[in-house]
Amino acid sequence: MSKFILDLIVIENRKLTDQYVLLILKSPEKLPEILPGQFAQVRVDGSSTTFLRRPISIHYIDYEKNELWFLIQVIGDGTYRLSQLKAGEFLNVILPLGNHFSVPKDYKASLLLIGGGCGVAPLLYLGANLKRRGFEVNFLLGARSATDILQKSEYDRYGNVYITTEDGSMGERGFVTAHSLLKSSNFDYIYTCGPTPMMKAVAAYAAKIKAICEVSLENTMACGIGACLCCVTDSTEGHVCVCTEGPVFNITKLKWQI
């Protein structure tokens, strides 16, 4: 897939919580084909501490409106700058980068998309895409508390939404892997993105029930296009770049102790 450098226009910067914003961006040119799981390298302008681009996953794409959504968690000065963008300003992005989540061959396959924290971001676009292809989609979203459950109404559009919060303020109390859904149902495919301990616990569950499991890694990156070799993960084929061989990996390719 060809990669493009685009100046996107900020249509809306919606503050979701103290820590999260939703950036809705429009492309002056027709957006190229972007697959669920792919990401963009976003340039941060005007920061005295953030030098490199920030890899941000594609939260959603509306091809009819030529709009692209980023879900941004404010962590450092780079993401803070992104959270301060105003409507009408431009954001320079390189996309589409990386590989993508796979689509099951059997349209009757039962699917579960598990996200934690900001890791829920790529699952919206994935869920929308899978629903459009005729799959029944189940989302399991985890967060610390109810206020950190982001964009729930958007996920509701594309599938069944199950929630866990650590304080029990929404859905079931505890981590995603403790949700009763995992005991009552069986799944053929599990897609997950979020903190590494969560993804490892999900991978262990998937291995136990013999489901195919794809995880999306968030290693720190410099180039995002396979040139610098900074973002590697250890795989069955040795060190591979998360930006080009990933970010999505089938867990059988990773050397995780699960």
Binding site: F51, L52, L229, C230, V232, D234, H239
Partner: peptide, 17 residues
Amino acid sequence: QGNPYPRMAETPSGMLN
């Protein structure tokens, strides 16, 4: 194979690899 991850650290005006 190179060194284990993490191999990169960002600094205010550059990066370490």
